[in-house]
Design a binder for these strands. Structure first.
Lengths: 208, 208
DNA sequence: CAAACATACGAACGATCGTTCGTTCGCGCG
DNA sequence: CGCGCGAACGAACGATCGTTCGTATGTTTG
C-alpha cells in the first residue's frame, strides 16, 4: 500500500544515523522551546516519523535529555582533565581552558544550551551525578584562579566565584546566532582572556 | 458544612493582597521549575485554593508570566533612564548602573530569574514588546561603553558585546542562594566594577 | 526459504493540562 | 433586611501529554 512510498525513505537508510539524527532534532527543540515545552509528537514530526516510533530508538523522553546533557558534561570534564595535566604556566593554562571551552561550545551551541539551561529537568539519580560533574568543572576553573593567586599572578579574590562568573560569561555565547570558524573562536578566546585579565579600563580603575 | 472552617481563613483576609501573594507564589514556581513545567493546579495548591479560583485573580497562566516579566523589564528600563540623565563622568555612571542593576536584581531574585529565563514563553505581541524593552536596556549599557571609548576612558571594543556580557555576568547572581543586604550589594557592585575595569591580573596580561 | 530482527505504524491507554461553567457563600452597602 | 459582588468551589470540558501494545513490513541472517 502506502508502505511502498512511506517505507522507501526510511529503508534507504538501513540502520544508519537515524538515532543520531533524532537526537540532534531533539537538541534543537529542547534548546529553542525548552524541554518541558517540547512534545514527543513534535519531535517525531520533525524527525519524519510518528511518535511511538521514537521509542524504538530512545526508551523515554528523559533519555534524550540525559544523553544530551551528559554528552556535553563528559566532554567538558575530560577537556578540563587534559588541560590540568599540561605543564604550562597557570595563565597559559587559563587561556587554553578558555579557548577549549569555547571550541567545545561552538562545536554544538544547541547542545550546550540544553546542557546549561535544561539539566534541571533530569530526575534523580541522574540529577545528582550531573551536578557533581558540573561542580568538578567549576572546581577546575577555580583551581586555576587559586593557583594563580598563590603565585601572585592574579589579584586576590574568591576563586570559585571567579570561575563561575567566567563560565557564565562564556556560556552566554550559545545565544549568538552566527556559527564561528576556527580562527574566530581563537579570537573570541583572546577577547575573553584579555577582558578577564585586563578589564576594559585604559588606566587602572580609580573610583572610591 | 465545611464552609465554616474552610471559608474562615480566606475571609480573614478580606480582599487583601491575595492577588499579590499568588503572583509571588507563581514567581517562585516559574523560577524553580520553569513556566512550562508549572501547572495551574500546583500553583493553586501552594496558594491554598483550587485551580479554578485562580481565574478570579488572573485571566490566564500567561497573564501571570506577563506581569512578572514586564514588571521587571519596566523597573530595569526606568532605572536606566534615571541613570542616563545623571550628570556624572561615564565611569561613575557605569558604576551606578551596575549597583542599581544589582539592587533591583536582589530585590527579587526569583522574579529576575523568570525575567531572564522564561520570557520566551510569552506569545505575540507581548513577545515583541518584551524584546524591544530588553534591547533598550542593552543599548543603555552599550551607550555607556561607547561613550567611554570616545573619551578614551575605556579600551576599544564592541560596546554592545561588552554591555551584553556585563549584564549576563550580573544576572548570573540570581542563582546564588543567600539574600544580600544593602551593604553586601554595594560591595558586590564594586567587585563587578573592579573586575570589569581592571581584570584579574596583577600586571597587564602579556600572552601572545 | 524460513526465522529473527529492526523499525515503522495506528489505536489507544491513563494522566494531566489550561480553562469554563454553574453555583454557593459571606461580606459590605443601600 | 435584602441585594449585589468578590471569591471560592466541584464538576467537567476538550486537548494534549508520555507511553504501551499489537501488528505489519522490510532487511538480515542461518
Amino acid at each position: 500500500m502506502k508502505s511502498d512510498t512511506l517505507a522507501a525513505t526510511p529503508a534507504s537508510a538501513p540502520h544508519s544515523g537515524r538515532r543520531a539524527l533524532i537526537a540532534s532534532f531533539a537538541t534543537e527543540l529542547f534548546h529553542r522551546k525548552g524541554y518541558a515545552a517540547t512534545s514527543m509528537r513534535e519531535l517525531a514530526s520533525v524527525s519524519g516519523i510518528e511518535a511511538p516510533s521514537l521509542y524504538n530508538h530512545f526508551s523515554s523522553k528523559e533519555t534524550l535529555l540525559h544523553e544530551i546533557c551528559f554528552g556535553m558534561a563528559d566532554a567538558f570534564v575530560s577537556t578540563a582533565q587534559r588541560i590540568a595535566a599540561m605543564d604550562l604556566p597557570v595563565e597559559n593554562r587559563l587561556a587554553r581552558a578558555i579557548e577549549e571551552h569555547l571550541r567545545l561550545l561552538f562545536s554544538d551551541r544547541e547542545a550546550v544550551g540544553v546542557f546549561v539551561n535544561e539539566w534541571r529537568h533530569l530526575s534523580e539519580p541522574s540529577l545528582q551525578t550531573f551536578k557533581s560533574l558540573r561542580s568538578d568543572y567549576e572546581q577546575f576553573f577555580a583551581g586555576l584562579f587559586q593557583e594563580g593567586m598563590q603565585q601572585g599572578v592574579f589579584t586576590q579574590g574568591d576563586p570559585l566565584w571567579l570561575g563561575r562568573q567566567l563560565l557564565l560569561l562564556m556560556n552566554g555565547s550559545v545565544h549568538s546566532t552566527a556559527p564561528l570558524d576556527e580562527d574566530a573562536i581563537a579570537q573570541l578566546g583572546q577577547r575573553f582572556f584579555n577582558l578577564w585579565m585586563g578589564g576594559v579600563a585604559s588606566r587602572p580603575a580609580q573610583i572610591s
